[in-house]
Design a protein around this nucleic acid. Structure first.
Lengths: 203, 203
DNA sequence: AAATAATTTAAACAACCGTTTAAAACTATA
DNA sequence: TATAGTTTTAAACGGTTGTTTAAATTATTT
């Protein structure tokens, strides 16, 4: 077997991931992928049978990557304020490292909700993290405001992800370049941390 | 002139708007639009010259619609707590009436930020609303927390828009049907109102 | 080294894309 | 009612799409 450099299959998958994330499924052609991977166009189908199959494989990976770090943090045995701060930092770092990831997920699911969801396992995991107990206990003993996971989790995610989702709009709206946006995003991060803790933790 | 029913030009534009919002520019074919409008395929180019020109016209309308109601509310002469509540209600109603609108805007801009922005006029309008004065005054006399419009405005928008943007995910994640989601969204709306006012208004 | 298997290639496939054409059908004016 | 102008039509255009083919090349096994 040829072992110089990556295996062709992986090269194609990584190239396809980049192109799909940037242009979406509909905006990506087989030839785009082949060009990005610097490989012959027939190899996509040789290794993955079809553009659709390749896409589904990548989408599953991307969705798992999106949720896994969140689940990990939710399960940490740390106090709730620290956990919220870590969650938001984690989201912030993810959006900086993979700015196309969330808009890609949301848009592809929006266009065709049914075909894209994997087995329930991933979702069950979120429903049963240690964070849920922490929240329930805090609400029971009166140290935390009465709020469900369903409502709290999106509050943690939305503020950071939203400004990155609408990054071009915010840059234009508030006259910022990329450096200015970075500073802006950091400020936003601290606001949302303070705001949520303020609201959630009583006393 | 034939005056029974709508004019063909309007019929095509409205059909195109529906299809574009649902499937995006890349996912929409000229034949999709013709079929949705129940018209011959050549008429799209007869009235709008090209798919691209038709799209740009629609995109401009949609972007304006998105911002105009926000600007209107920001300019109202009402107290800041009421204004925040109205802003969030307005967003909520818009997301219910036009669930495809925001993800459409964000995704199209994400794919090609440069070509899609109209003249600066719309953006200048947001920069100079009455809300800005309200905020600055409140910060100056110590009744409001020190926060910029750039940071506050997205906080108002993100919570509601985000859960609708990720509606299929949230439905799946928390095991809700459409009725369940509606209740959930209403709860979220009240949380975000309380949370922002709590954070912003001192004392 | 010969034979077998795996990989890569250029070329082609039918189907579909956005767009154009030229004739038909329609409306308005004289 | 004849004529000019507008709107609609079916059919076709060249180009691109995802996918397949069969031959060429490379790697592995005998």
């Amino acid at each position: 077997m040829k072992c110089i450099g990556e295996k062709s299959e992986d090269k194609i998958k990584e190239a396809a991931r980049r192109v799909f994330l940037k242009k979406g499924f509909d905006g990506t052609t087989s030839r785009d992928i082949a060009r990005e991977a610097d490989m012959n166009i027939a190899l996509t189908n040789y290794y993955f049978r079809s553009k659709e199959k390749l896409f589904l494989e990548i989408f599953r990976d991307v969705l798992e990557m999106y949720f896994n770090s969140t689940i990990e943090i939710l399960n940490k045995k740390i106090d709730i304020k620290t956990k919220i701060s870590e969650m938001i930092d984690n989201d912030y770092n993810m959006m900086k490292a993979e700015p196309d990831l969330v808009i890609f997920i949301m848009n592809e699911i929006h266009k065709e909700p049914d075909r894209l969801f994997p087995e329930m396992a991933l979702f069950k995991k979120i429903q049963s993290t240690y964070f849920i107990n922490q929240l329930k206990e805090g609400v029971a003993d009166g140290t935390l405001r009465d709020i469900s996971l369903e409502n709290l989790l999106p509050l943690m995610k939305c503020a950071i992800e939203f400004i990155f989702l609408a990054k071009p709009i915010h840059k234009r709206l508030f006259d910022m370049d990329d450096a200015g946006f970075d500073i802006y995003a950091e400020t936003q991060k601290e606001h949302i941390k303070a705001m949520i803790c303020n609201y959630l933790v009583i006393g």
